[in-house]
Nucleic acid binder design. Structure first.
Lengths: 336, 336
DNA sequence: ACGGGCAGGTATAACGATAAACCTTCCGAG
DNA sequence: CTCGGAAGGTTTATCGTTATACCTGCCCGT
């Protein structure tokens, strides 16, 4: 139905190849011919078929970002920044959600989709490690975030341990004695995001010669605001003494702030709170949220750089690179 | 580089067509042949090339959602819901951002991209009306949100006027006398989101026999939290008396709450606040935010339905449908 | 006058998958 | 014994672009 190149060629009285040459700004076309072809294109409203071009050229100019959830603000921010970062180097970003329905099943299904892109940025938070290992793709894949990952992939992550350590240390140094971690992970330290941030919580105590109370390591069913609120309620019901909370993400911290407020506790006077991610919303919570700032721009730059490097290498074997970017604390009003 | 169907065909000693038939579960294949082909596929790690399939079949099974900003929570929620809604009817969603860099230029550029999809859901908030009119696509396009829109497109929107009216009426009925609209639009009522919600604000006053003070119609440079906070600060500096705020979105309301808190005013005692969109975050703000709930699920259902209808019609002319879904107020603690 | 080269264009063959038509066997009914 | 047809495949022709090779004048240097 849509007009094709040969429609244009016929109408302009030239060969399709000439139309192609005009569209792509290639040299071998005379000025009058070029003008005529452009005229016909405008008249017919012709648009190149990117599917056909992609098939023939073997490249689509498109990068995919695959996130577990669209409705987590962290990924919204990441996607926005990446769109800009990639556009500045002539690449286009599309975003897909992996964790839709039956656990990880999607991750398997979408494997074929990856072929459609020139590169894939895959957020592995909440993704089955086995699913990631199953990726046998020829397209460049850059992993984002922490997990037990096959080291054969490029990988960009923030410094979870050090960021968490700074957050907790700050509360301890400003007088907190019982700092809980909400969203921590009990058990063998693996390389998941939660376990790394839990390690930072431990290290902060140790560096000050203190031992963290295991009761203050609190797990949550989902890394979301409601879970943060629910946990605070339970803590207080159980009569657990707490004067500091390190929430593993700003979303959780949002729930924690809300829970504390409802319990009649004031922040930072009664309880200090620190989040992680330094989302824009932190600036507008009540009180404004102190948070670990992962240097979003540097992360995006690293992702863009890594994926470009592989695209330019054109499939040649490259030593995988693992980039860890420093985090620093953004101080606001939820800490003393 | 990637293995193709003919690699598989050769290794299995059959024709490519048979491989295709196996992959697509078509009948004319014997059980033993099928098993052999599947074995080779697994062994070689073959994945169908969706670009090629898309070109030949003329369909990709993929729908695009185009949003102005990834980092606005409303769109994150919409994308998440749509992913689920489309997946349940066998369609896959990808999301792109339109409003990246030089104003709207992208909107023009990405026009060719639309061809790659079986359907496009286009959020027109903040999009140039002329740009929308320039769309001369053969793919089904469903417009989302309000604007001066060419009526030739299908269109889904929430009831902005009535939602806003209910929000403001609620505050007026619970004692507020000076209700500001933050993010309103002055001037000729057009069909933009802001102007419709402003109309609701007017109507609420009129239905109670009151006249809104024009000074309480407050514009903002961006529909974001920081703008809401800044506006509150300015209002109070100017000594403007206010005992109710209708913020045009929950993001703006978040900023308003933060601004009021910093000014030492308490919500809802001194000032009532209502937002719009009923985002998940509203539940966790301090205080919990009363908001207009646009019935997100019904909107998603309508979008899915409209785009499917056009896909099934296979390009045939269809009367464009304009769906407006009712909004209702979700009462929480920021109002009395 | 002749060959080389360049400007301006065309013809052909893919890219990888699929729709549609076609080709064998083999089997059972009449 | 013959013929219709089902089962199980294969062949061929595209889908819309682009890479590559190729063609045709014509101008210019020697």
């Amino acid at each position: 139905m849509a007009t094709t190149m040969s429609d244009v060629a016929r109408a302009a009285g030239v060969s399709v190849m000439t139309v192609s040459n005009v569209i792509n700004g290639r040299p071998r076309v005379g000025p009058d011919t070029r003008a005529r072809v452009l005229g016909v294109i405008a008249e017919l409203g012709y648009q190149v078929n990117l599917t056909a071009r992609g098939l023939r050229a073997g490249r689509t100019g498109t990068i995919a970002l695959i996130v577990p959830r669209f409705d987590h603000a962290y990924f919204g921010g990441l996607a926005a920044r990446l769109t800009a970062g990639l556009e500045s180097v002539g690449l286009h970003l599309v975003v897909e959600q992996s964790g839709a329905s039956p656990e990880g099943e999607l991750a398997a299904l979408s494997l074929a989709r990856l072929q459609m892109y020139d590169g894939v940025l895959l957020s592995v938070v909440g993704l089955d490690a086995a699913a990631v290992d199953r990726i046998q793709s020829t397209v460049p894949v850059v992993l984002i975030g922490e997990r037990d990952l096959p080291p054969r992939f490029d990988h960009v992550t923030m410094d979870n341990v050090e960021g968490a350590r700074q957050a907790v240390e700050h509360m301890l140094r400003s007088g907190a004695r019982r700092v809980a971690i909400v969203g921590g992970e009990v058990g063998t330290p693996s390389r998941t995001m939660g376990s790394r941030r839990t390690l930072g919580w431990r290290l902060a105590h140790e560096s000050l010669g203190m031992a963290p109370d295991p009761d203050l390591l609190i797990e949550i069913p989902e890394v979301e605001a409601w879970a943060g609120a629910a946990v605070v309620e339970q803590m207080l019901e159980r009569g657990l003494a707490v004067d500091g909370v390190f929430a593993v993400t700003d979303e959780v911290a949002t729930g924690v702030l809300s829970g504390l407020h409802r319990a009649g506790l004031s922040v930072p006077e009664d309880v200090q709170v620190v989040g992680f991610d330094n989302l824009a919303i932190g600036e507008h919570l009540v009180p404004r949220l102190t948070s670990v700032d992962p240097d979003h721009d540097a992360m995006v730059d690293a992702m863009v750089e890594l994926v470009r490097r592989r695209i330019d290498a054109d499939g040649a074997e490259l030593e995988p690179r693992h980039v860890v970017l420093p985090s620093r604390l953004a101080l606001r009003d939820s800490t003393r």
